[in-house]
Design a binder for these strands. Sequence first.
RNA 1: GUGGUUGUAGCUCAGUUGGUUAGAGCGCCUGAUUGUGGUUCAGGAGGUCGUCGGUUCGAACCCGAUCUUCCACCCCA
Length: 455
Amino acid sequence: MSKKPSIVKGTRDFLPDVMAKRNYIFGTIKSVFEKYGFLPIETPSMETTETLMGKYGEEGDRLIFRILNSGDKLGKADAAALKEDNLAKFANSISDKALRYDLTVPFARFVVMNQNDLSFPFKRYQIQPVWRADRPQKGRYREFYQCDADVVGSDSLLYEVELVQIFDEALSNLGLTDFSIKINNRKILSGIAEVCGESEKIVPITVAIDKLDKIGKDGVVSELKERGISSAAIEKIDPLFQLNGSNQQKLDQLKDFLKESEVGLTGIEELEYVIEEATDLGLSQAKLEFEVTLARGLNYYTGAIFEVAANNVKIGSICGGGRYDDLTSLFGLDGMSGVGISFGADRIFDVMTELNLFPESALTATQVLFINFGEKEQKQSMIYAKELRSNGISCEVYPTDAKMKKQMKYANDRNIPFVVMIGSKELQEGRITFKNMVSGEQKEGDLKQLLTQFK
RNA sequence: GUGGUUGUAGCUCAGUUGGUUAGAGCGCCUGAUUGUGGUUCAGGAGGUCGUCGGUUCGAACCCGAUCUUCCACCCCA
């Protein structure tokens, strides 16, 4: 007796109908990336522990899936470390590699290793799965795909503008009509900490104000206290909660708040430029919103910070991104500024499912089914099928002369829009009968007439 | 990682204070219709009640463990 099989928590099988939709998402995003001149690369699923650990903060390290050493190597386990309760050291003695946690850090490693073969600024895109040992929830998986586009080797703000355009174009092309690209700048956050006289505590400060939406002003204030921010500093932060109006109005209010901070003002200048340029060029469906509280991925972002949220869908952010000046320096290459974005394909899938945004055309693979009436008829069908295929039309011949009802049902279940019948009568007359499965309309004719249906 | 929650047919779910043979709708299969799907009608198949263990004369139901789902933290696509 074999046990019932199962799959790992937080992972999924994808059936053909789901794959069709996923490929539609990947294809749409990919074509936008390519339109902006990004080139594809891939990196291995696993990286050395050294490459990954320490790049995402303490929380991140906990969420990295580690891969157990095999064979003799496993015998070198550091039992002493285990006894001493030094789990990190013990883990390192039995595991020297791990599954990638995102695509950005492996990309930084890739750039450093391949710098002599790349010309800069280097624009790449990468669509691959990543793994996180997180506790699954809705829209939150342990294996999911990221679609990343990054530019490395230029600090031009032109790229920030381009990436905003890419967010807008890709998501609009997918049929989303109500989403917000939220934008902030790490320099503004640094400025805020500086003005408050708590430059050291920028991380706890931003982590706390990032939650404003969720826990409200009082919640943020009490969290700031808990994190050891002085009450004088908390008072100074107060004006941030009062920001209101348009993007420009908010920036103007902030300009006053940050007038003593050079970095802060630089951040505002950068943001103003990006917002102005993107607005002038025009966005299709996206709303571009400046949000001071946005503090994603603080561990390596140094300039712009992006996040995209689908409005009216209860799911976390569907995209993220930002600029990171020092990322490759972690691997020994200085002076390489990078900026990039990431689409969360699985969450976009969930949003599109909820809003019913997949077009019928994304679900149809086979265009024509030939009904099988017997040996001779099948041979003729195969000849015609070959001709249709050479015209770029996907088609298939039913494999046996099963009952017609069964064959028709097969076409119906698979959403095949046309059925061709070549029975003894058609065979004799050298003609075909074709039926439109949507309208139910049926015609007699030849293959050319069928071909006109696809023009 | 912390606290909670869920699991019964392919799917969505009923199932009484523990009591004989666990139900419904949808889907699936067959036929009405030997050259016509999506509609209709008639019939049929399909369940070690997540898994393992315990309590009991007796467990889908009570207890424990474990796996899974979802939720709130944490964090994040």
